[in-house]
Write a protein that binds this DNA or RNA. Sequence first.
DNA 1: GCGGGCGCTTCCACTCAGCGGAAAGGTGGC
DNA 2: GCCACCTTTCCGCTGAGTGGAAGCGCCCGC
Lengths: 264, 264
Amino acid sequence: MAGGSREPGRSVTSRVLAVLGAFDADHSALTLTDIARRSGVALTTVHRLARELEAARMLGRDDRGRYHIGHRLWELGQLAPRRLLEVAHPWIQDLYAETGENVHLAVRDGMEVLYVHKVYGRRAVPIVSRTGGRLPMHPTGVGKVLLAYESEWFVTSYLARTLERPTPHTVTEPGRLARELASVRAQGYAFTYEEMTPGSCSVAAPIHRDRGGGEGGGGDGVPIAALGVVVSSRRARELPRLVEPLLATAREIARAYAASPPAS
Amino acid sequence: MAGGSREPGRSVTSRVLAVLGAFDADHSALTLTDIARRSGVALTTVHRLARELEAARMLGRDDRGRYHIGHRLWELGQLAPRRLLEVAHPWIQDLYAETGENVHLAVRDGMEVLYVHKVYGRRAVPIVSRTGGRLPMHPTGVGKVLLAYESEWFVTSYLARTLERPTPHTVTEPGRLARELASVRAQGYAFTYEEMTPGSCSVAAPIHRDRGGGEGGGGDGVPIAALGVVVSSRRARELPRLVEPLLATAREIARAYAASPPAS
DNA sequence: GCGGGCGCTTCCACTCAGCGGAAAGGTGGC
DNA sequence: GCCACCTTTCCGCTGAGTGGAAGCGCCCGC
């Protein structure tokens, strides 16, 4: 930067982004010093930038003086194009109405699932995932589905890593996981039983790109998203009953998405 | 900035923010030149900043090369503290289930209403407002409610301006509007009939800060938010029937909000 | 087919905005 | 009352950022 930067070549913008990037789901309220530590930007610089961001309401501060993401940033974020979400929402809402359970829509982002939307109410069990949140792929229903239809090299490199094991039920052996993915592909949906969170299990189905041509549209190709229902594991036996409505909803969304106007 | 800036004293950060600020609900896809025009930042500078923001996925580009808000920004925005929203959602969902109509939650921001949340499904009429969107206060149900409980000087200065008139039914005469606000305060809710959008009307109620003490909590003080239901004007006659459930929901939310843990 | 307008991208010389170490000021806990 | 940790202010040094100019590519209208 201008001035005695320790790390020449780093732009001001990248520092601003690093400051914002210091926040994530597990660190949504940070002190100045935290931000400096997590972003790798000098404390003084963070101080100046954070004040400017705060003035623009891109950051806010709580009563203890800690910084958090500001409302302006939320507002701007709402302008991101979310065609799939807007198309899918009414059907997801219907599925929630029909089942009374948490329904989410997720996409793959890197090697994680990104929860794009979530519909729930008082009837549904409280659930960990939050909109905008990320989870690993192998212990979640939506993740398994998205992984099952990925290219071989992707799956191989996914399985090659050390897989997290959030609960004792999480499947992490590459062989067994690969077999599960094959059966997901074969049946067109995935189950999980307390693989991510003790007390919750799920069903999920892919939303395929609908190529119009009659009934032959699904099955192959990388899905654009996955739709999942999470229920308390006390009601795990009800999961199979959810499969049909879930698949029907996924098909509806695929159709509606294909019919909706292409990127404006 | 460093260099031959035309406007010394303007920080890099402010330019970055100006670039992002060029996007709004009516301008969600912009060319580089558009951004430069709308932000007042030199084209070359916008070019450099936009590329850097694009690399960080804070901006994205559509197939025509136009820029739009990126997914990363959406994701960050989801981290903004939204305690009210999270507390209120289950009840709002219930109200939607009960009525089948668009329900929204809005707060005042400056002299506008900011739509913070919206619950709807296939049963509800398509509606203009979007989450993160803003509308003037006087032609909307939630706006009227929020305005009705504002301090006198605020209302005075609100009415002193030239008020937009989106439809022929919009009330803009200060006198009549002031009388309407008084009756909103008296009855505790507001109606609108095609004052913002032809074909839609609404009911809205305030969510007051619940001070615990039994039934005496409501009525006075500036509400923390407003809850509104929008219906097709063909069903305007059903509006009165919605008042009771709406008020009940607003009370529930107030109570739940007061009971929820104070800013973590 | 060709000229002109528009928007994107690259280049480059000039310069002041930004950097961060140091030190002072707050706040809370033990 | 002292210490530890966080926030805020100060200030001298300097290279990152700026924006005009020019080149490129595309599409539209004639």
